[in-house]
């Protein structure tokens, strides 16, 4: 069997692939925002909420952290119709990714809440800060600085996870790679190009998040 790499046949599709990369970024952003909201809600309930509300949240987090995202989406996509809930492939993927990210982000943000020291808040009170002021000037800057690195890390991971959407027929970066593969049969070429797209995508995201962290939160840690 002889196979020669011919990148020439796939170059016309590079623009089409870039469109997929844009969709992957959007997918990651949607899932991140939804997951972040879920995580913020769950983490603050764990920290400040009533005792009875804690164990359902713990169960949710532990379950979603210990099962694969792919199977979670399979369940949402194929099993929910039995109970009359029909999700489109894009909706199922977004819902699955958000719920999964929500569990991770709950854990991360819970650690953030735990890092607030009572002494800090009391000191702000002594200086005559109102509650809103103490959150705005004391708690938030501190908590953001602690949370920013793991949150940005999670965003990078989410960008890579979007490739799972291809399995459900969403035409993002990997999905479009499948399409091009079916048209040209230049499999290794197009999949290695897709891999490079992901590398570039996450490198750009890492660099951008590093710049943001350095400028706004004075985090000096290098992302590489």
């Amino acid at each position: 069997m002889s196979y020669t790499l011919q990148f020439g046949q796939v170059t016309p599709y590079l623009g089409y692939l870039a469109g997929g990369a844009w969709l992957a970024l959007q997918l990651a952003a949607i899932a991140f925002v939804l997951g972040w909201a879920i995580g913020l809600g769950c983490a603050s309930t764990l920290h400040y909420g009533p005792r009875w509300a804690r164990w359902p949240i713990r169960a949710y987090v532990v379950f979603f952290l210990n099962t694969p995202l792919l199977v979670q989406i399979f369940f949402l996509y194929f099993a929910l119709p039995d109970w009359g809930i029909l999700l489109g492939s894009f909706q199922a993927v977004v819902l699955g990714m958000s719920l999964n990210a929500g569990a991770y982000l709950t854990e991360i943000q819970r650690a953030g809440f735990n890092s607030i020291r009572q002494a800090e808040v009391e000191a702000a009170e002594t200086l005559g800060f109102t509650r809103v002021q103490s959150i705005r000037y004391v708690v938030l800057p501190h908590i953001l600085k602690v949370l920013f690195p793991p949150l940005s890390n999670q965003y990078i991971i989410l960008t890579m996870t979007t490739s799972i959407a291809a399995i459900f027929g969403v035409e993002e970066l990997t999905g479009r790679t499948y399409n091009i593969n079916a048209q040209t049969f230049r499999s290794l070429e197009i999949f290695s190009i897709a891999a490079l797209y992901y590398v570039v995508l996450t490198l750009i995201a890492s660099a951008a998040l590093y710049a943001v962290g350095r400028y706004f939160f004075r985090i000096k840690r290098s992302p590489f």
Binding site: M1, S163, T174, F191, A195, Y198, V199
Partner: peptide, 24 residues
Amino acid sequence: VELFRRIPFLVLLMVVFFAFQLAG
């Protein structure tokens, strides 16, 4: 490290799959 850390599992799986094929 920087390369393989940033390739999603599914895409890496496909690359390995077709690379084995290429190698015969």
